[in-house]
Design a binder for these strands. Sequence first.
DNA 1: AACCAATACAACCGCAACAAA
DNA 2: ATTTGTTGCGGTTGTATTGGT
Length: 261
Amino acid sequence: MGRQPCCDKVGLKKGPWSADEDRKLMNFILTHGQCCWRAVPKLAGLLRCGKSCRLRWTNYLRPDLKRGLLSDHEEKMVIDLHSQLGNRWSKIASHLPGRTDNEIKNHWNTHIKKKLRKMGIDPLTHKPLSIVEQEEEKPLKKLQKPMEQTAEEPTNDCLTKDSNSKNMFMAMNLEYGVEEVPTIDPECLELICNNSPTSSSSSNESSILKDFQFPDFDWSDYGIDNNNHHNNNGVDNIMENNVMSLWDVDDFSSWDLYNII
DNA sequence: AACCAATACAACCGCAACAAA
DNA sequence: ATTTGTTGCGGTTGTATTGGT
């Protein structure tokens, strides 16, 4: 016994909505409020299925919708939320008043994806592309090994506890198949700095950041001499709260993160 | 001006979750 | 507990618009 289709599709109109249809639907919803979508087309005098009406209303006709391109701030929010939530567009949209899941999904697919790739970041995993590519080449055997070696349950704690960040970073990358790669959110971009300079092996850990050679990265913005990170206290300034946000760095494409680590 | 390709956005489809009977 | 109907979600497709040749 199959399920009934959501509506009788015979004789129903498909495709773009006309201004007249919009007006009818708008008038109906504004007068009667949102009720049973299945009944809406009949009551509003539309030859559409209820699903189509709901979509048209939520994505286009709702009076509280914002129009136009996403602002830079909204775009950053989307990227940030996507790194935490993945493709859960409705959840992401719920954080952006006046924006619909469809709008955000479209914007992601047409703008942000490209932008991130250009920056050398994999839009799916939010990892640097070079790492993702290398991961994909690794045989399955290698993927399993780090799991066997660690007695502890692996954490997704942005490598904060292990003094050997390089190994941890590699291990984390190897623990997951492509589909289940944990996304790297901005907090994780802060990972290196979470090696607190005040912890027991601070000399080693704090030097990790100082050893980085970020091409084209202007350390002077942080009060650091570009050519001499090691002997400059500026690093500690930006690590004041054990956090270094890379959020405003526009182009990661030239960074060789494997070598960095 | 005409054609083609790329882009952006609206709309559709199938599925899953949930609620009601 | 099961069936049926409704709604919402995410992936995908279709089409209008724009830009380049």
